[in-house]
Amino acid sequence: MRSETLTPQRAGAAAAAFSVVAALAAVLGFLLIQGWPALSAGLGELPSHAENMWQLAGPLVFGSVLVAAIAMLFALPVALGTALYLVFYAPKRVATVLGGALDLLAAVPSVVYGLWGIMVLAPALAGPYAWLNENLGWIPFFAGEASATGRTALTAALVLAVMVLPLTASVIRSALALVPEASIEGAYALGATRWETIKLAALPFARRSIVAGSMLGLGRALGETMAVAMVLSPTPFLIGIKLLTSENPNTVAAYLAQTFPESHGIETSALIALGLALFAITCAVNSLARWITREKTK
């Protein structure tokens, strides 16, 4: 399989692989060169009347991380449960149908999720939010005045959770499917119940993939643009953790989409610099995932 001669297949595959690196380098170069002028820009030049780049970028980066993190908080347990059920509990036919549905969920365009979020989910959640706010308002996340529209950071996070669920679940499912039969048979032979088998044999084996799947999902959530732009009611320069109010921190990606069409000159540079910030966060998340998975292979 691994011959040293230069076959057309080998050359083609290598070219494809290196074109990925070239594309990455080109994107990074573009972001650096075009975004650079904005780093030293001041009041009057930047979008949203920001005083400097940090005032603009800080709240947006915070908002991106906050919304994505909450999304993962919801998505991960459901993804793990889905994967466990599909691999260990479900009858074969049910597993096939559910697996197909999961893949379909991944194929829905994000604009559709955005429309669903603004037309169905947000209005439906306005009532429950008011209840949470009234009864559990002492928890900082539920404090403030509840939004009457339901277009809050929590709704955006829920929409994102649904969007990243199929990706995370399918990574975990593939890993669970690869648990060696011998380990499972061994656990049963020792008298373990099914749940004990999962706990002792399957989960430790799949741990790295669970982390990797979560990080992939987190990366997707951080970069998601349209759904957040449509669902979230943003307030500029806001850093806050109240999840039920009309005033929410915006995310980098949504802000770019909203501000780009009417921007020019240094404002465009500022938006590209924000793109660089998003690129950096996503790289950091991916590196973290790699670091976690690599450590265990030793």
Binding site: I118, M119, A122, A126, A148, M230, S233, P234, E247, Q258
Partner: peptide, 20 residues
Amino acid sequence: NGEAAEKTQGVRETLANTKG
């Protein structure tokens, strides 16, 4: 402060879905 929505369509959807 206040509620924000994206583009004309976003404002219209939000108005249509929210009493008051």
